[in-house]
Design a protein around this nucleic acid. Structure first.
Lengths: 223, 223
DNA sequence: TAGATTGTTAATCGATTAACAATC
DNA sequence: TAGATTGTTAATCGATTAACAATC
């Protein structure tokens, strides 16, 4: 009942600036909870996260106020609200496409499973890798991807192929109905409107690190 | 001589919004160059990158105008300018701390080396991994990190340890003079002002993907 | 020269911060 | 009740977009 109210209130679009902060809120709230802290103010959260208290209150109020004047926020309540907001009250099945080093690293990283993201298969073109197992996850022939997606619920496609084949892989995933893509190929994949795409471009991250190093050097030279 | 002019002009702080776009410019310019395209307009770059032509011209002019009215931008010239801006006219030595799956994946990824980032060593606590080789890169005992940094020029520390030890590792790196950290531990590392820090938080990336999936679902439900 | 396209200023838009009434 | 802290409106700041003179 109350749930419905929240959903109705929530028709405003959440800006990407806010979206990028949400996981961090969830992380710090989780830490507080596991420390047994029961209440927290926007000021205390500000110290933890580095965001201003004002911004935190603004952000939270995008999802309906879950604080209390004079008291702050109840940590347990915050935690369960953010869990729902981030969609972590469900589980998701994911497949990895590309069984190279990065694909293997992701499949091996058990923390995702703890959060509810289960990797159910890895798909690969290279016959040397097909048949391998990573933890208990099998590496299948990429040619079997269609039937796998048809026979199993797959929510998320994780692309760790070389950039040459990544767009093609994305097209296949989308064609068979996958609505969310986590892309690690260093390339801008094109997807239709109703597909959610999250890019992790390690190359771009490294280059921006490089830029910032040099920027710092140049600035110091001038003084 | 002209170089000096550019440096003098460049005292204005470049906002992170711009910094995040720079690697993408460099990538698309590189693609144009390798296709043999010799000139490009801000409008054409807009179609490639998805940024507006106006924004592109604004961004470029942070670094001094390298275009020509009525003509556009010379691709070769753009490429060499961005190479310098991103600090890619030098090479960098990097070490990886943490020889787990992610650390191995990064050490294995030869594309970084092609851009001038050479990984010269991997450091690890787990004795089972010490002594291993990834490509030609040795996995050393973490206890040797001090002498390694003292004996070798190390520009970048890449942290792929579990989050429990990542801050401690960062402190050590900084103590021995490393000025740039590429952090993959899912945690907010604290560094002093003069150290450049670039975070890649895969967990946060996955949670924001999850949020966006659910947001889409909720919005559709309401109509 | 005429046409094209930059560099740059001005206008707009959106996100962050400040302020404070509401209220626990 | 008095003190604390939210939720929310208003002010500010910064980033993006529009417009156009400069000029190749």
């Amino acid at each position: 009942m109350e749930e419905k109210v929240i959903k109705v209130e929530r028709n405003k679009k959440i800006s990407m600036a806010v979206v990028r902060r949400l996981p961090k809120y969830y992380r710090y709230i989780g830490e507080l909870k596991s420390k047994g802290v029961s209440r927290v103010s926007s000021n205390e959260l500000s110290e933890l996260t580095g965001f201003t208290a004002s911004q935190i209150r603004q952000d939270f109020n995008n999802f309906g106020g879950f604080g209390q004047q004079g008291y702050g926020y109840n940590v347990e309540e915050l935690e369960s609200n953010f869990k729902k907001i981030l969609g972590l009250n469900k589980t998701y099945n994911a497949i990895v496409i590309g069984a190279g080093n990065l694909g293997q690293a992701i499949a091996n990283y058990s923390n995702f499973e703890k959060k509810g993201f289960k990797i159910t298969g890895i798909f690969e073109k290279n016959p040397k890798l097909i048949g391998m197992k990573i933890r208990d996850i099998s590496v299948y022939d990429i040619d079997n991807i269609k039937s796998f997606i048809e026979d199993n619920k797959v929510d998320i496609g994780i692309i760790t192929t070389p950039k040459e084949s990544s767009q093609e892989v994305a097209n296949i995933l989308i064609k068979y109905g996958i609505k969310a893509i986590w892309n690690f190929a260093p390339l801008d994949i094109k997807v239709q409107e109703d597909v959610v795409l999250e890019n992790v471009n390690l190359s771009e991250s490294l280059l921006s690190l490089s830029f910032q190093m040099n920027e710092k050097l140049n600035n110091n030279k001038n003084f």
